[in-house]
Write a protein that binds this DNA or RNA. Structure first.
Lengths: 116, 116
DNA sequence: CTCCTGATTTGACGACTGTCAAGATAGACG
DNA sequence: CGTCTATCTTGACAGTCGTCAAATCAGGAG
């Protein structure tokens, strides 16, 4: 079985998910299973240049800095975003491969698709 | 903004998710954020005929009936599966539209794609 | 009607999660 | 060096979640 992350995975719909794979995927879906995190992900992904500084994210929500920081950490540890410090600010960007992989898992067509 | 569920949604990557939409989507992603539920979903989706009876799902896990039932309820209330009683048994099947929608949200191409 | 089997509901309990306040780190600037 | 700003970490607390045992509901068979 192709358990490799870069080679990726058969879609959910084609064959039963193996135990280990389900744990990995669930971790990523779970990270997206919170409205705040989903919006953070979207804010980052859709921001110009494909990246956003924490300072641009904090103001959007009625939440304290530490809470935003916590959510970003969850997204980062799930492998959905990457953070990079540049001077005073820390910039986050999404990992398109990760989103693509999750997207692929969900539809029967799955991997083969990819309309360039 | 096309906030309509059937018309669907712009992908995460194109523009920031609105508050209400993020809550709905998060609910579905959250439902998939558990290894057992992901495997259940996969078992149902990949089962012959596109449906599976609860009795076929229970034996797969080292979990009690009530627990499986609970997870199925979560998936059902998230709109990811549908259940139907036929005689003694209850059969579940996935809602392909729901999975498709989630898949679409995750990639930049989003809706327009669809390589037949 | 009574019993049996399949499935859900209820109630309980430990584990985990989202949130905040307070403290700690990291770099920029005097 | 010390200070200021941006971000993260820690500790605490209420709320939610995953799980099981026990009770309940729905059909089929005697």
């Amino acid at each position: 079985m192709s358990n490799n992350q870069s080679d990726c995975c058969s879609p959910l719909v084609r064959e039963p998910l193996a135990g280990q794979q389900s744990v990995e995927l669930a971790r990523q879906f779970k990270a997206m299973g919170d409205p705040v995190r989903l919006r953070l992900l979207s804010l980052i992904a859709s921001h110009e240049g494909g990246e956003a500084c924490v300072c641009e994210l904090t103001g959007v929500f009625d939440l304290t800095g530490p809470t935003i920081s916590h959510h970003l950490k969850v997204l980062r540890e799930a492998g959905l975003i990457d953070g990079e410090r540049r001077g005073t600010w820390i910039y986050y960007r999404v990992r398109p491969q990760a989103l693509q992989r999750l997207s692929d898992v969900l539809v029967p067509g799955g991997l083969p698709v990819r309309a360039g």
